[in-house]
Design a protein around this nucleic acid. Structure first.
Lengths: 260, 260
DNA sequence: GGCAGATTGCGCAAAATCGTGCGCGCCTTG
DNA sequence: CAAGGCGCGCACGATTTTGCGCAATCTGCC
């Protein structure tokens, strides 16, 4: 603790914010008083810092101090709120593609979760490593659920890793429904989390038909890793008005583009 | 456990709520008085906390205290009530066998679930296809969870099938903890559900040490399918007084028998 | 059905915490 | 070198939380 107290000279606000966040992540909830002593500034300053960091969404303010943003209720609660209407419409349309008795693969992410919500009471086999989908359908007697193994990633409510890939090589589905972080103008499907890319590829291989769900905000969009090209897709469901350049590239690759 | 009692100084409300929930998940129902003493606040404060947490659906308020929300609507709640004390004692003893940092395999069934309840806050890797174990530990940051894939069997809260077996061939654990429907006098481990037998065998293969948890009602006992013989076991944990014939057979096969 | 003991909800006062205005010192800018 | 901007500490009223006492309610038992 004296490693901080020794820093009496001068601490940039930026640096101080980093230290606050690090403390929170390392030791969980921390009080204003503790932080003030540790960083050698007044409680008023800490309060101002906390207000600002809270506004930036980097932590969550609580009475008496603050907690790490990750520590609060799942980050999906907020993420799931943006573009809800669009995603719901997409999900509705996607559900119509599915015939009773089929086996479908559902991707990781909130998009697939939205789709799962439309599947209650349907007679289907759902294969997924998406734990939100599992939670959604686990009490639904009609739906057979196949959960793919893997290492639990709590922040993403999913299972990933080589076990998941192994399982995917052993199963086959009529359709796979994929989400994405963005589709580039040429029709390349991108993602931001590298660990999911091999999984998405394995899902594409395991399914007869590949359906991509991408709301209009993803057109055009980007990500750090390429998942697949337009030639791997069969259907893309998006909102109107979709980006014309991207749509053209997709149609060129004989992808059916559905605008809802 | 004294980790709580030591916290007499000052605790953020947020932190206190976390501790209450963790206590409930780890030790089941808790009284207002106990919680108040343990957290160093008045009973009135605990009551207010419980009311709030109940309103948020994070626990269920009962007269005299509270129980974990997951514990209430579980159809296994009844099954889990029989021989609770015995199974708890067994689980407690089994948890002592585990060292921090280890990777352990947990069987399907309520026995393994009881053990999982003793693992909150431990630094471990838990591998399982037992969904009760997953529910129990999914919010515990310390525990890494590896879920084995498979077809959801709702009535047993578990995943089974060839996917599970495939995954088991790809993993290795320091110890596996098995439950059973009964142990025959000769030391043969039995089970009633045939579909689980290949899984239990695969788990035995995947672990360095095999630990069987069997309360005294299982000695001697029976089942329709044989899982393994005494030569596959390393440790058996049971209640005193255990059946002497069976114990002798186990010791003959160099199995360590722990009576609690 | 009634009784003793425990538990609960509620009002109120004390304590802790919060937000804010003000002044001071440091750095930037012209 | 002077003016202005900015971050920081201090102090004070407002808000929230906490602890305690008491009447109403509930549970277990005879």
């Amino acid at each position: 603790m004296s490693e901080f107290a020794a820093t009496v000279i001068r601490v940039l606000p930026q640096r101080r914010h980093e230290l606050i966040l690090r403390t929170l992540r390392a030791e969980g909830p921390a009080g204003v008083q503790v932080l003030a002593e540790r960083l050698g500034v007044s409680q008023a300053t800490i309060r101002r810092d906390l207000v600002q960091l809270d506004k930036e969404g980097r932590l969550t303010r609580v009475y008496g101090g603050a907690v790490s943003a990750a520590d609060t209720d799942d980050p999906f609660a907020e993420v799931a709120m943006v573009r809800v209407d669009e995603k719901d419409a997409l999900a509705e349309r996607a559900a119509e593609l599915i015939k009773d008795g089929e086996a479908i693969l559902l991707d990781i992410g909130t998009t697939a979760h939205r789709l799962a919500r439309k599947l209650h009471g349907r007679s289907l086999t759902v294969i997924t490593s998406n734990l939100m989908v599992y939670e959604e359908l686990k009490d639904d007697q009609e739906v057979q659920i196949v959960l793919l193994g893997g290492v639990l990633r709590r922040t993403y409510h999913s299972l990933v890793g080589f076990l998941t890939e192994d399982n995917l090589r052993q199963v086959h589905a009529d359709r796979v429904f994929l989400g994405t972080s963005g589709v580039r103008p040429g029709g390349q499907v991108m993602d931001t989390t590298a660990v999911e890319v091999p999984l998405k590829r394995a899902m594409i291989t395991a399914a007869d038909q590949v359906v991509l769900l991408a709301d209009v905000g993803k057109f055009p969009g980007t990500g750090i890793a390429r998942v697949c090209g337009p030639e791997d897709l069969d259907v893309v469901i998006t909102n109107a008005p979709a980006d014309e350049t991207t749509c053209a590239a997709l149609r060129q690759a004989e992808v059916e583009v559905i605008e809802v």
